[in-house]
Write a protein that binds this DNA or RNA. Structure first.
Lengths: 140, 140
DNA sequence: CTTGCTCCTCTAGCGGCTAGAGATAGTAAC
DNA sequence: GTTACTATCTCTAGCCGCTAGAGGAGCAAG
């Protein structure tokens, strides 16, 4: 058993030490074995689980989704329909988010380009912010 | 002076009542005049300020940026360089965000497409999450 | 045996709201 | 005048996903 300390686990997984403890606290990681001196010990399976969590977080899944994905992972005989549904939902979210940010970007770009670098009184940035009606697309 | 209630202000601006109170509390809105019965009264200028805040929030500016933009708006003789810098910074942020979400989207799409709708044991979704090495682009 | 690092637990804070309790004000109908 | 109803008031606590800091204990090297 080559079990490692929380610091090692953090370096290995790229998840910060307090965050690892937090994951344990909210039950994403199981209760761990400890040394005599009460330090946490991480086995290979714990590190894998941590990697899974990290990757899922990077992909923007929220904690609840990850909790579900982890239980799915634990029972490999189940249908993967739920896992797929969760991933699809996330994909839709991301897509929507990209769309709305793209509209935002256009708006911001128009604002910035319109600025003549003069006084506030005739600044497009302030002006546009003050009057939503000036927006090209009012749907945000 | 046609001053309106907080409910009216909310309907007019699209900002929820508790949020309006919150903005006052953190000093984005000035202390307001009140009725004898201690209800807040919103004048046209307050409504304009509220609209400005809402629009800026929709464009994703954080509260501190909005605070600055508001003080800039109040002094129309100043140079608009700072306003422009804030807007540009936000534009850069949005752009970065879009880029990273687009990479994410590709990753998610690959995951979802790879799923054969079978058992968890051979599910691409779970598999990819468990092994970051399978990602096309490892930079997230 | 001391120095210096890692680790422990605990509580509080971040942003930007949102939700709820319990009290008061205002309005409309009877 | 009373009742019923809604809107508003203040205050505190909660949301997510951490992050920061206090105050203490374990442990390896010199």
């Amino acid at each position: 058993m080559t079990e490692v300390s929380i610091g090692e686990a953090a370096r290995h997984s790229g998840v910060k030490v307090p965050t690892i403890r937090y994951y344990e606290q909210i039950g994403l990681l199981p209760a761990l074995s400890r040394t005599d001196g009460n330090r946490r010990l991480y086995a290979a399976s714990d590190l894998r689980r941590l990697g899974f969590i990290r990757h899922a977080r990077e992909l923007g899944f929220d904690i609840e989704a990850i909790r579900t994905l982890l239980t799915l992972q634990d029972d490999t005989s189940q249908s993967c329909a739920s896992a797929n549904a969760i991933a699809k939902a996330r994909l839709t979210d991301v897509d929507l988010h990209i769309r709305s940010l793209t509209a935002l970007k256009a708006e911001l770009a128009r604002m910035v380009e319109g600025c003549r670098h003069g006084r506030i009184a005739e600044c497009r940035v302030i002006e546009v912010l003050a009057d939503h009606g000036e927006c090209a697309e009012p749907h945000h």
